[in-house]
Simulated assay, not measured.
Amino acid sequence: MSNDHLGLNEYQSLASRSDRTKGKGNGFDLPVLGLVGEVGSLLSEVKKRQRDKAAIIGYEQTVLEELGDSLWYLAIIADHADIRLATLDDAGVETDLPFAVLQPQHALPLNTPSAQFEKTLLRLAAATGELAAAVDGSHGDKPLLQARLATVLRHLVQAANESEVLLEAAARANLKKAEDRWPRERTYPPLFDAEFPADEQLPRALEIDIYERDASNDKRYVLQSCRGLFIGDRLTDNIMQPDDYRFHDVFHYAYAAVLGWSPVTRALLKRKRKSKSRVDEGEDGARATLIEEGVATYVFGIAKDFDFFADQNPGDLSLSLLKNVRQFARGYEVHSSPLWLWEDAILQGNHAFRFLRENRRGRVKLDIEKRSLSIGELPR
């Protein structure tokens, strides 16, 4: 992507790299539904801002993101119809057209949505409805589809003007988000403890045995051992209806193996980074441990409803889920980790958890250099 002004066709080509709707339905259903949803989200955000005023956090960022997402769906619909985005402008140019031409003015911070902005969004919603009707069984009418797409783009530009957001900024933020979630090339970031002494690093290769035992009071608990030594406490589910949460430490090991981050695992293995007191307290301390436990509990609660992601592959997990998980860790080093890496950690951890649920015991292997966690049978 150029550091100069971004072009509409350039954006469309870059956006299409993260298109996961091709080959599904008639090629238009999903992106059209997506566009309708994003416009609806914009209207909802304006309504909440007008109702709650200062109680709405991150309003400006949300408008920027929703405009970018709306633009993405518009670009994808056009791409499916083999229509170049730049041809939707009134000038109808065949060559590329910079976003800056659409909005020559500069954007200023937005404090309160104007009444005109709301009206423009309603017109945008109506235009989106007309676009949906145009592709409903009649998308062979390319001139009609192009006219409907052009109307949506015109209202998007108007909405960006009235919200004082540069559409180019929204487009660039959208591309950055797509790369964060569905990158063309997966490049692992450096490990957080790479520059620390070896005895303060998470072990680059490690095996941990996890197994269930019966207690005298008819309860069941989980024990863990590493290199012949017991680690951690006896774990139970700590809930009225048992759900096998007692095996949940495997999620922490997945965070350690894949993200290179786990204050819980550091505490268990006595690998806190004490050579730097600020890191020891701020990144490896009690609050960071609580944050990680919160992440594990939050993901577990959602995973329970989806068979612990048994049918999910890389790229399938909800974007909202991943963003919420990363938001938990805001202010900590792991917040810089890309969303796709968070997904890898969650999927690998849940794979191991499903194995433990089925077998009630297993040997977990961490390979931090390869960013992987695997599990197999534990010899009896």
Rank of each mutant, 00 (worst) to 15 (best):
H5R: 13
L6F: 08
N9F: 03
S18N: 08
T21E: 11
K22I: 10
N26A: 07
D29R: 15
V36F: 10
G40F: 08
S41W: 10
S44C: 09
K47P: 00
R49P: 00
A55M: 12
L67F: 08
L67Q: 06
S70W: 03
D79W: 08
R84A: 13
R84D: 12
A86H: 11
T87E: 07
D90A: 14
L97R: 13
Q103N: 03
Q103L: 05
P109Q: 10
P109Y: 11
P113L: 10
Q116C: 00
K119I: 07
L124P: 04
L131R: 13
D136H: 13
D136A: 14
G137K: 12
G140L: 06
K142E: 01
P143N: 05
P143I: 08
L149T: 06
L149A: 06
L153W: 04
R154N: 11
V157P: 02
V157Q: 04
A160K: 03
E162Q: 14
A169F: 02
A170I: 05
R172Q: 02
R172A: 00
A173K: 14
L175C: 05
K176E: 12
R184W: 03
R186V: 03
P190H: 11
F192M: 11
R204E: 01
R213K: 15
R213G: 00
K219Q: 15
Y221M: 06
L235P: 00
D243E: 09
R246C: 02
H248W: 04
V250M: 02
S262P: 07
A267S: 07
L269K: 11
R271M: 02
K276Y: 04
V279P: 00
D280R: 13
D284E: 09
T297E: 04
K304T: 03
F306M: 11
L319G: 02
L319S: 05
N324Q: 14
V325D: 09
Y332D: 05
Y332G: 03
E343V: 10
I346A: 03
L347I: 04
H351K: 15
A352Y: 04
R363Y: 07
L366M: 14
I368S: 07
L378M: 13
P379R: 10
